[in-house]
Simulated scan of single mutants.
Amino acid sequence: MFVRLNERVYLNMAKITRTKIDHVEDGIRVRFYEGQDQVAKSRRFDSVEEAAKWFEELIKDIK
C-alpha cells in the first residue's frame, strides 16, 4: 500500500521493514527503512510526541 509522505514522495509501506523516530542534527524526524537502507525521512518535528502522532495518522488506514 502506498502512503503519501509529502507533496512529492509516496512510500510503498509493504516494503518498509522498520521505522524510527530519531533526534537528528536539525530536529526530530521519522525515518523509514527497507532492510538496512534508509529510504525516506519525514519533515522536522519539535517533539517526539508530535512525530509519533503524525506517524499514527499516516498509517491509520493501513491497520
Rank of each mutant, 00 (worst) to 15 (best):
L11F: 13
L11C: 06
L11Y: 10
N12C: 07
N12F: 09
N12Q: 02
N12V: 00
N12T: 00
M13H: 08
M13D: 01
M13P: 11
A14N: 14
A14I: 01
K15R: 13
K15L: 09
K15C: 01
I16N: 09
I16V: 15
T17C: 02
T17N: 02
T17V: 04
R18A: 00
R18H: 15
R18T: 11
T19F: 13
T19K: 06
T19L: 02
K20H: 13
K20C: 05
I21K: 08
I21F: 09
I21R: 10
I21G: 06
D22A: 10
D22F: 12
D22Y: 12
D22I: 00
H23P: 00
V24W: 05
V24F: 02
V24E: 03
V24M: 01
E25Q: 04
E25D: 05
E25I: 02
E25R: 08
D26H: 09
D26Y: 10
D26C: 03
D26E: 03
D26L: 01
D26V: 09
G27F: 05
G27K: 00
I28T: 13
I28F: 13
R29H: 12
R29E: 05
R29V: 07
R29F: 07
R29G: 07
R29Y: 09
V30H: 09
V30C: 06
V30G: 09
V30Y: 13
R31C: 11
R31M: 10
F32S: 01
F32H: 06
Y33T: 05
E34Y: 15
E34K: 14
E34N: 14
G35F: 12
G35P: 09
G35N: 06
G35R: 14
G35I: 10
Q36H: 13
D37W: 11
D37I: 07
D37F: 14
Q38V: 01
Q38A: 13
V39Q: 04
V39E: 01
V39M: 04
V39H: 08
V39W: 06
A40Y: 09
A40S: 11
K41R: 13
K41S: 00
K41I: 01
S42M: 07
S42E: 08
R43T: 10
R43P: 04
R44T: 15
R44Y: 14
F45P: 10
F45C: 03
F45W: 12
D46Q: 05
D46R: 14
D46C: 03
D46V: 02
D46H: 14
S47P: 06
S47C: 00
V48A: 06
V48I: 09
V48P: 07
E49K: 14
E49H: 15
E49A: 14
E50G: 07
E50N: 08
E50Q: 15
E50V: 07
E50H: 15
E50M: 07
E50T: 11
E50D: 15
A51P: 13
A51Q: 04
A52I: 00
A52R: 12
A52Y: 14
A52T: 13
A52F: 11
A52M: 03
K53S: 12
K53I: 11
K53A: 11
W54M: 05
W54H: 09
W54I: 02
W54N: 01
F55T: 03
E56I: 03
E57G: 15
E57C: 10
E57S: 15
E57L: 15
L58I: 07
L58P: 14
I59P: 12
I59M: 06
